[in-house]
Every structure is written in structure tokens, then in C-alpha cells.
Design a binder for these strands. Structure first.
Length: 485
RNA sequence: GGCGCGUUCGUCUAGUGGCUUAGGACGCCGCCCUCUCAAGGCGGAGACCACCGGUUCGAAUCCGGUACGCGCUACCA
């Protein structure tokens, strides 16, 4: 248990959509906050103006909200540490870089990108660590003022002191040590006046009183820069926890090229938020037992950073799918009905006339045969409309020269029963079979084909009852004409 | 190339020196159930714990090295 109330943040950059890796990072931050009575903060890191995507922030927020990860502080929800959007904090970054420059911990750099590129190329050739050569560190004050007066573009760089051991005490990885000689004089303030991630994240984390920085492993290598910044500013260093990466099947960092990475893609495909959250929580974390089924509030209870794995985890869709199935089966009738209605509304059956009672019967019959709610509509379209075609394989397998006659007989018998129940269909079928001297299956299979057009699905008598007597008879009559051996 | 991180069934993982002939889940295979498809039940295949060496009476577990993988190495985050 963390004694003080921790403050953590999820700090995405609004470049389009919420990445599933981002969802996992957000989730772990959220879980850690909830578990330890802390605050979960959303901060928008929009300091790269070239990668800005319109509407991305709104999208990020709605997606986070959809997943159930409500933030305690962030855009539109001030907790006294705002603004929570970095582009609205430019004066703050300027103020702190100025201070660093005054203390000689940072310096003006007027190098052109051409020179920088040349430098890098040369270093690459001599297979030496590529680093800025502090060329501008020694420009004197008057020269700087003059260049500034002439509006020469400049950046501010971190003045890294050599031969220093920088120690990171990572909650997940333990102690990680870097030599400051391998740390580049990182650009802190870009020539457009915007800060780089490295400066902005340190300044904001400090100002927003962030106690634990929980982020992806890709940041581990640049953490020494951040530690140096904290030291140069004289600030307290937060605790770090670098999460293992989410991987493609080929073990590279999860990317768009090898499948869907946007949370909204999975949402659109019909994955339940409960399933996605549960699945993603288990990619890199386990409570130490065999339990795998969790709801968000249960994750909040069990989560701890200490039990997060070190190695990356492949994003395995098959497991996600089974997770979706598991969560789907746990849904109550009301929830399921709501989900089905939403799917119907956006389907071609949006003008259906089925009442809740009927829909619930369909749900009960289809539930355990689907991984997604929309599959009720896809695989059970015969509940909503007459078969548009009859499966050829099924005809070959189940339709004989006497099928039409048997179905005819079934139709006639059921016709005389008023409001038949499921049992009535069953009894009638047994009776007809017995009288004709055939097995039940000799009627069941062709009948299924006649009313549904396919050979698989819920129990036949469930289907018939849901369809109702008139519709059943009509479909038999149609099939009799259309289906030929 | 440099620096850093990682390495248990195909995949996600349990395992923190003896309880382990390495446990669970997904996927795969088989059987049962059965009007079909599922679901469910039962069972099976699947990991020389990356490799080599050391510490120890004893190592997947501790230490060292090697290999491989990944990440970072931008006026991107």
C-alpha cells in the first residue's frame, strides 16, 4: 500500500485514435490510482504540431470513457493543476527553460538541421554514439543576443554533465543505471517555441505533483534525460514503472501494419469493453493465481505494479475473442437486449417488428453460439426474414425425395393446433415421424433447412416456436417448391 | 554501431532454492452429450524452463558469460 495519495497520469498525444497499448497504459495507471486511493489524471501532450489530428482529443476522451476509465483531473475537469493541455502551457515551459539557461544547465543552440545531419552521419560512419557536440555551448552572451536580435532560429538544449552515473529505481525492472556520457544534449525547446516531450513531461509531472510515472518501456532509454532534468531543477524525482510492450505476432512493437491497433476498431467489431479491458489487463499482469475473468472494479481490487511482468506480450486476438465470449455469457437479459437493439438499429433490419419478448427468446437460443452480439443478426437472420437461399451442402445431405411430403404432413398437423408451444411442435413431429415410419431426424433436418436455410443453429423446436405457426407453415410451403433434390 | 531491457508450452501466464514427473488459460486433437451448430463435461498432444558455466546436498528460481529478440539512438511522442 502506498501511504500518501498517489497521483498518476496518462499522457497521450492526440495523433488520431487511442492505441490498445495506450489503453493498457491508461488502464494500469487507472488501476494503480484506484487501488491506492489516488488520482488518475489525463494530460494531452500536443507539442508536436506537425502530427496534430483534428478531433483526436475528443476521440481519445470518448474512447477512454467508453472503456470505463474516467479521469479525476484533465481537460474539462480541473483539479487545480490545469491547464491539462500542453499547448496551453507554453509560457510555463519558457519560464523554466529560461531558468535552466540562467544556471548554465541548458543553452541556446543555433545549429542548422543540415549541420546536425552532417554531424550524425559522420558519427554513424565512425560507429560512435551519435550525440550533439556541444558546438553552441561556448557562444558568448553578446553573440547570442545579436543572433536573437536578428531573429535567428534557435533551440534550447540540455547541458548534460559528463561522467555521471544516473540511477533509475524502476518498480518493475529494479535498478537501471546509465552513464551520462551516453545521454545526448537533448533539445528542450524547439525552434517553434514548443517544448519537446522530455521537457514538458518533467515540468508538468512536477507541477501536477505526479508521484508515479507509469508508461511504456519505450521511454526507459530516455528516462536518464528526465532524471537529469529533475536534478538540475532541484525537484523531487517521481517513482518510475516502465511497462512491457504490446507486441505483434512477430514480436515487434504492436503496430498498425499487422492488424488493428485502435481501440475504436475493436469497439466497432463488436468487442465488449469489459472483454477488451479484461484482456488487456492480463497482457503483462496477473494476480499470481489462475483467475482470468475480471470486471474493472475487481481489477482495481487486485492490481499491483509489483506483479507486472518484464517481458513484452503478444496481442493474441483468439484469446480476446474467447474473453469476449465469456463476458457475453455473463450479460443479463436486460443488458443483452440493449446491446442487440443497438446492433439491430444499425443493421438492415432496423425496421423489424419484433417485441422484447421475442428478441429475448432469440437471444436465449443464440447466446452460446456467438462471440459477438451482431452475430445474432448475421447467423440468425432467419429470425428476422425468410431464408434468401438454402445451403447447398445441407440440401445434399438432408433433403430426400420424401422430405417435401413429410414436411407437408407436419405442416398440416401443426395447423390444427392453436397457439402451439415448443412441446407441441416436438410432439407433432414425433407423431408424424412415427406414422410415416421414419426417424425423427428424417423430418428434423429438412425442416430446419426449410425454415432457416441452413443446417446449424439453435434447437429446431426453439426456432419453430419463435417463428410461430403461420410463419413455419409458410416457410415449409415455400421450401417445398424451391428446394429440389 | 552505441546504450538499455527482455528470454517458462504456438500465445497469455503461474512459479521468488526442495511441495514440480513445471500448474492454469486460449488455440489444437479425441471422446461423451446431441436433431444440427454451439455450449458443457472428460481426456490428450504441446515447455530438454534460450544456451554455456558457476554457487548449492539440491536451481526454472541465485551469480557470470554467450546467443537471440525487442526498445531507444529526431527541432516525434
Amino acid at each position: 500500500m502506498i501511504s500518501e495519495n498517489p497521483r498518476v497520469r496518462f499522457a497521450p498525444s492526440p495523433t488520431g485514435y487511442l492505441h490498445v497499448g495506450g489503453l493498457r497504459t491508461a488502464l494500469y495507471n487507472y488501476l494503480f490510482a484506484k487501488k491506492n486511493n489516488g488520482a488518475f489524471i489525463l494530460r494531452i501532450e500536443d507539442t508536436d504540431r506537425t502530427r496534430l489530428v483534428e478531433g483526436a482529443v475528443e476521440n481519445l476522451i470518448t474512447t477512454l470513457k467508453w472503456a470505463g476509465l474516467d479521469y479525476d483531473e484533465g481537460p474539462g475537469k480541473d483539479g487545480g493543476f490545469g491547464p491539462y493541455v500542453q499547448s496551453e502551457r507554453l509560457d510555463i515551459y519558457k519560464k523554466y527553460t529560461d531558468e535552466l539557461v540562467r544556471q548554465k544547465k541548458a543553452y541556446y543552440c543555433f545549429c542548422t538541421s543540415d549541420r546536425l545531419k552532417q554531424l550524425r552521419d559522420e558519427q554513424q560512419k565512425t560507429s560512435v554514439q551519435s550525440k550533439y557536440d556541444k558546438h553552441c555551448l561556448h557562444i558568448n552572451e553578446t553573440e547570442i543576443s545579436e543572433k536573437l536580435k536578428n531573429n535567428e532560429p534557435y533551440v534550447i538544449r540540455l547541458n548534460v554533465q559528463p561522467d555521471e552515473m544516473i540511477r533509475i529505481d524502476d518498480i518493475i525492472r529494479g535498478e537501471v543505471i546509465f552513464n551520462s556520457n551516453v545521454v545526448d544534449d537533448q533539445i528542450l525547446l524547439k525552434s517553434d517555441g514548443y517544448p519537446t516531450y522530455h521537457l514538458a513531461n518533467v515540468v508538468d509531472d512536477h507541477l501536477m505533483k505526479i508521484t508515479h510515472v507509469i508508461r511504456g518501456e519505450e521511454w526507459l532509454s530516455s528516462t536518464p534525460k528526465h532524471i537529469l532534468l529533475y536534478k538540475y531543477f532541484g525537484w523531487e524525482i517521481p517513482k518510475f514503472a516502465h511497462l512491457p510492450l504490446l507486441l505483434n505476432p512477430d514480436k515487434s512493437k504492436l503496430s498498425k501494419r499487422q492488424g488493428d491497433v485502435a481501440v475504436e476498431d475493436y469497439r466497432a467489431k463488436g468487442y465488449l469493453k469489459e472483454a477488451l479491458v479484461n484482456f488487456v489487463a492480463l497482457l503483462g499482469w496477473s494476480a499470481g493465481d489462475d483467475r482470468e475473468f475480471y470486471y474493472l472494479d475487481e481489477l482495481c481490487e487486485s492490481f499491483s505494479l509489483e506483479r507486472v511482468n518484464k517481458a513484452g506480450a503478444v496481442f493474441n486476438i483468439e484469446k480476446l475473442q474467447s474473453m469476449n465470449f465469456a463476458h457475453l455469457q455473463k450479460k443479463s437479459d436486460e443488458e443483452f437486449l440493449k446491446l442487440l437493439k443497438e446492433e439491430l438499429a444499425v443493421s438492415s433490419f432496423n425496421n423489424h417488428s419484433l417485441n422484447d419478448e421475442k428478441l429475448l427468446l432469440i437471444i436465449h437460443s443464440m447466446k452460446e453460439r456467438i462471440n459477438f452480439v451482431k452475430e445474432i443478426i448475421l447467423n440468425g437472420s432467419y429470425f428476422l426474414t425468410r431464408p434468401q437461399s438454402y445451403d447447398l451442402e445441407a440440401i445434399k445431405k438432408h433433403w430426400t425425395h420424401e422430405s417435401a411430403q413429410l414436411l407437408q404432413k407436419f405442416a398440416k398437423t401443426i395447423h390444427d393446433i392453436e397457439n402451439p408451444l415448443k412441446e407441441d411442435y416436438e410432439n407433432v413431429l414425433h407423431k408424424v415421424a412415427e406414422e410415416a415410419g421414419v426417424k425423427n431426424a428424417a423430418i428434423i433436418h429438412p425442416l430446419r433447412l426449410a425454415v432457416s436455410g441452413v443446417s446449424g443453429g439453435p434447437g429446431l423446436f426453439d426456432i419453430l416456436f419463435i417463428l410461430g405457426k403461420e410463419e413455419t407453415i409458410d416457410r415449409i410451403n415455400i421450401a417445398k417448391e424451391l428446394v429440389k433434390v
